[in-house]
Design a protein around this nucleic acid. Structure first.
Length: 245
DNA sequence: CCCTGATTCGC
DNA sequence: GCGAATCAGG
């Protein structure tokens, strides 16, 4: 259920040509990343630096190294996650002391570009996978944004039933969390399931959001039909519409 | 803190 | 091949 989205930037010929131009204009790596993010798809500064370096052999223009007065770091010192736990070495570098100490102690898990650049909740990845890309080059980040927007709109348009108003076959997904107010629930048509009345807990939309995904939705439809029940009404906005909107 | 590019290596 | 994590430094 993943792989529907390119987690990495799509280095099309067009994007590479643009990259080359921006390097020639002496922009910094982060400036270039910002521009490419706007013109194509979100991309990190590291990704830009990496591509420029890899293209060096092909005669690609290179970034200008900032002036240095100090010594160049010995090869092999960078990039390698700290594997040895060194609780405390006496302070070495006043400027970066705290940083070095922290990094030495914990080797943080390597994250995917799903979290980059800046602030995409990894938990939203599954949600994004539900929304088909409009273009082959659409990135995970854009899909997440779209899916979240759609999800909020769906909740806002739901029935907002209180607990006592909920009936058999109503979707029990909570759609409000306002402090002090009554808890309210979606109330949409629940999919067939193992619960009372042969219904599940959620409507198609919220089932999908709870991790089911399109295949789960289809399975529920099929099992519903096989049991002689009407195919689940696809709620106010059908799953497909929701996912693709 | 902000920022710069450089490097390694897991994926 | 790609790029996050981490580096060294201004």
């Amino acid at each position: 259920m993943s792989g529907a989205y390119p987690v990495t930037f799509a280095w099309t010929d067009e994007a590479i040509a643009r990259l080359k131009k921006l390097v020639e204009e002496k922009l910094s790596a982060s400036d270039i990343a910002a521009r490419l993010s706007k013109e194509f798809a979100p991309i990190s500064r590291n990704a830009v630096i990496g591509m420029i370096r890899r293209k060096a052999k092909a005669g690609f223009p290179q970034l200008k190294a900032p002036a240095r007065t100090g010594a160049i770091r010995a090869p092999g010192a960078a990039g390698k996650p700290a594997k040895v736990v060194r609780p405390s070495t006496k302070a070495q570098d006043a400027h970066h002391e705290g940083r070095s100490a922290r990094y030495a102690i914990k080797a943080p898990p390597r994250l995917t570009s799903a979290n980059d650049p800046k602030g995409f909740d990894p938990d939203l990845k599954a949600l994004a996978d539900l929304a088909p890309a409009k273009k082959p080059v659409e990135t995970l980040a854009l899909a997440v944004q779209r899916a979240v927007t759609n999800a909020k709109a769906y909740d806002a348009a739901s029935r907002h039933l209180t607990l006592t108003e909920l009936q058999t076959g109503d979707c029990k997904f909570p759609v409000t969390d306002d402090a002090g107010g009554a808890h309210r629930f979606c109330g949409g048509q629940a999919l067939p399931g193992k619960g009372p009345g042969g219904f599940g807990s959620y409507c198609a939309h919220h089932q999908a959001r709870c991790g089911g995904g399109p295949s789960t939705f289809r399975q529920a439809q099929d099992s519903g039909r096989a049991a002689g029940k009407p195919a689940p009404r696809a709620t106010a906005r059908s799953f497909g519409e929701w996912a693709a909107a």
